[in-house]
């Protein structure tokens, strides 16, 4: 089936098997390998991307379901070579170790801050419930999100 999507601002048109998962489409067809696969049961969130502005688990979406959608992956988050405040936060606060969960974690945090620019610690933890990290114990991730929230509040300065 023919699909059209816009990924990180670039339009793509592809012929795909209906069962192809969006995550495999992004990784194997478009070579956007920053989106990862960590489980098979929609729990770990490593595959999180934004579809029309909503964080979704791209392992639980068929590529054909995304036909016509605008998609943002981790590769599309920095603009003009400038890191997104969340990316800066993860770097500053040591919000990652092995880095495998990080792209999904950042995009889930992106969704959280877009809905709630000033989350409490508890709200951050709840907002990241759909993303598993085995390395960090989450505390530095919470700090990374707090860093980004603060950065956004002060106009990115």
């Amino acid at each position: 089936m023919r699909i059209q999507v816009k990924v990180n601002g670039t339009a793509f048109e592809s012929d795909v098997e209906p069962r192809l998962l969006l995550v495999h489409y992004l990784r194997d067809v478009l070579d956007l390998t920053g989106t990862h696969i960590g489980c098979e049961t929609s729990l770990c969130g490593a595959c999180t991307v934004l579809v029309n502005g909503h964080a979704v688990k791209s392992c639980t979406l068929l590529a054909v379901q995304a036909n016509g959608a605008e998609i943002t992956t981790i590769e599309g988050l920095a603009s003009d070579g400038k890191l997104h405040p969340l990316q800066q936060g993860f770097w500053e606060e040591h919000g990652l170790q092995c880095g495998f969960c990080t792209p999904g974690m950042i995009l889930a945090a992106h969704q959280l801050l877009s809905r709630n620019p000033h989350p409490t610690e508890a709200e951050i933890r709840k907002g990241l419930e759909g993303n598993l990290c085995r390395c960090t114990g989450y505390q530095h991730i919470v700090k990374a999100v707090q860093y980004a929230a603060e950065k956004a509040a002060t106009g990115g300065q």
């Binding site: 929609s42 964080a55 979704v56 969704q111 419930e129």
Partner: peptide
């Protein structure tokens, strides 16, 4: 119910 991503879809 679930996490943010699940609730979105």
């Amino acid at each position: 119910i679930g996490d943010v991503q699940v609730c979105n879809r």
